[in-house]
């Protein structure tokens, strides 16, 4: 291939050798919540590096859709942890976004947006850990380069005006819909497990088990980007739908990528446990457990222990 440099990619340019260093092994696939949700290889981190190469080399035409690839990332960085070549993928994406913004492309991809009915209370501006939100002439604005799609603004906004449009199955409505669907379709269902993206999923990554092994499943795991962002509605919805219990997994407090996600999750669960208690529901039916990164065995053991406890408690009457 002949080099046809798109000179406008001034920031991305410095990653040229890194893009060549990626051996395209694809080990990042199973770690990416986007790929696991859509099942399309073109949403996986490797594809984004390929896209970045295509844009930089001029082989791939710059368009809304090719630009959008770079704005679709939750910055969980699990791809980086799994990368054979040690590529810091999100740094590449961030620099690509800088160039794209300068060229007038702003996504949004997974970047948070603000609906016109925003009350401008500034809570999101104060809470954004990445200083991506600011108040300007046009109200609340998000810097699409700085935004890491963490969703804290979405959780904190009292008017529900802060939104992530492309949630890839990790948004509040997605989680509630999916957990309700599982509870509705499995008479054996007892528990919903909301797993932090860093609590490595202990089950099949990209394949499906035989129907004979799944029809009597008593729990299902749903991945969200941080346990600290699980809202009251998400955690309580399964109880309304006859779940026996809800388990939340979070990272250890000193190892949360989103600073205090673990702490927030524990606080939220403690608060909801007291509500359950006031409703004469055993608070043990809602629990939070710390799972160190990558410890699938412990995660599975905690799930098994929780199910045993629920079996002892029986259904909510």
């Amino acid at each position: 291939m002949e080099t046809k440099k798109a000179t406008r990619f001034n920031h991305l340019q410095k990653w040229e050798s890194t893009l060549a260093a990626c051996i395209r092994c694809g080990y990042c696939f199973e770690h990416c919540p986007l790929f696991k949700f859509t099942g399309w290889e073109s949403d996986a981190p490797r594809a984004k590096l390929i896209t970045a190469f295509g844009l930089l080399s001029g082989e791939l035409e710059l368009s809304e859709t090719s630009a959008d690839k770079m704005f679709n990332c939750f910055y969980c960085r699990r791809c980086e942890a799994a990368c054979s070549s040690g590529v810091t993928l999100t740094d590449v994406f961030t620099d690509a976004k800088k160039d794209l913004v300068e060229m007038g492309y702003t996504g949004p991809g997974t970047t948070s947006i603000t609906e016109p009915y925003c009350a401008q209370c500034l809570l999101c501006v104060q809470s954004c850990p990445h200083e991506a939100r600011s108040h300007g002439e046009n109200g609340i604005e998000t810097d699409p380069v700085k935004c890491q799609s963490c969703g804290i603004c979405v959780e904190i906004c009292p008017a529900e005006a802060a939104k992530i449009v492309h949630t890839f199955g990790t948004g509040k409505a997605d989680l509630i819909d999916a957990s309700n669907r599982f509870l509705d379709t499995h008479t054996s269902a007892k528990a919903i497990v909301f797993a932090c993206n860093w609590s490595y999923y202990p089950d099949l990554q990209a394949s499906r088990l035989p129907e004979s092994e799944t029809h009597d499943r008593d729990y299902e795991i749903y991945v969200n980007m941080c346990a600290g962002r699980l809202e009251t509605e998400t955690l309580m919805a399964p109880f309304i739908n006859h779940a026996w219990g809800v388990l939340v997994s979070c990272c250890p407090e000193d190892d949360c990528q989103h600073k205090d996600g673990g702490k927030r999750a524990k606080k939220q669960v403690a608060r909801l446990q007291s509500i359950l208690k006031s409703l004469d529901i055993d608070p043990e039916r809602l629990q939070v457990v710390e799972i160190p990164n990558g410890d699938k065995t412990l995660f599975q053991a905690e799930i098994d222990t929780f199910i045993d406890r629920l079996n002892a408690l029986g259904p909510i009457t």
Binding site: R24, C25, E41, S42, I50, T51, L60, E61, S63, T65
Partner: peptide, 11 residues
Amino acid sequence: PSDLYSFGSDS
């Protein structure tokens, strides 16, 4: 093309 491009490669 933004999807097709990544399907044009393997390892």
